[in-house]
Amino acid sequence: MAKVFTLFRAGLLTLALALSFGCNEEEASGSLLHLNFNHNVGAQELGLNDTWYNSAAGHPFMVERLKYYTSNFALENAAGERIVIREVHYRDVEKPDTRTFEWKDVPPGEYTALSFVFGLDEVVNVDGGLPNTTTNINMEWPLPGDQGYHYMKFEGRYDLNGSGVIKPFNLHTGATGNNQNYVDVYLPFSHPMKLSGGTWQLNLSMDLNEWLQNPNTYDFEVFGPMIMANQNAQQVLKENGGSVFSIGAVEKE
């Protein structure tokens, strides 16, 4: 009987050790974090071509294309310590396979905020700064005297004061005239995100209305369809860019 008890104790000890190692392994392993880029216009989900939305300046508008870069993703903990991944993500709303930025091996931790650059910083935003792919070439910003790439192509049409006169708009943002114009996006989590291995989905949403209203009202008619070299328009969009993203559901698979 004593032998059986000893064996039972040994079994328990082995099981405990195994579980302990298992837990340690999970704690020590990094997480796979999926940053999913979604889009809405106010309370409505973004639909290309088929939906007209209201803008703060009073011109209903529709969206034909939306392409942009985000980069330099960082997670921050309560102590203000940050882990950074200096990678670039390209999003084209017409291409579902660009929805997600995969951040591999995120160290375990309790994170309180996500930050990233909307666009490209001055290190990357130079001619040839991105890999020489057809996608990146199509985003080049070739204005003589400037460098780098479009940060965003947000293109569509607006209905002038709802009068039925349809005009094109092209919110093309980027660096011009030595103004970098990228946006530092800082998004605190409502509850800390405790990463301890596994795969996580972090849903982000860009509200396109925020480009046009917060804190500045952006009026398509005032700035016109050509804004690449117009720093006033770029500045308005840069200032509005800080509030366009919000964090939605954070889920572990």
Partner: peptide
């Protein structure tokens, strides 16, 4: 002509830009 082509004054480059002179779209 280059300056017109690669600025919004002529604005050819958004569709016909890059080294391939087409966006393939």
């Amino acid at each position: 002509g280059y300056d017109l082509f690669f600025t919004e004054e002529g604005d050819c480059f958004h569709c016909h830009g890059g080294i391939l002179f087409t966006d393939n779209e």
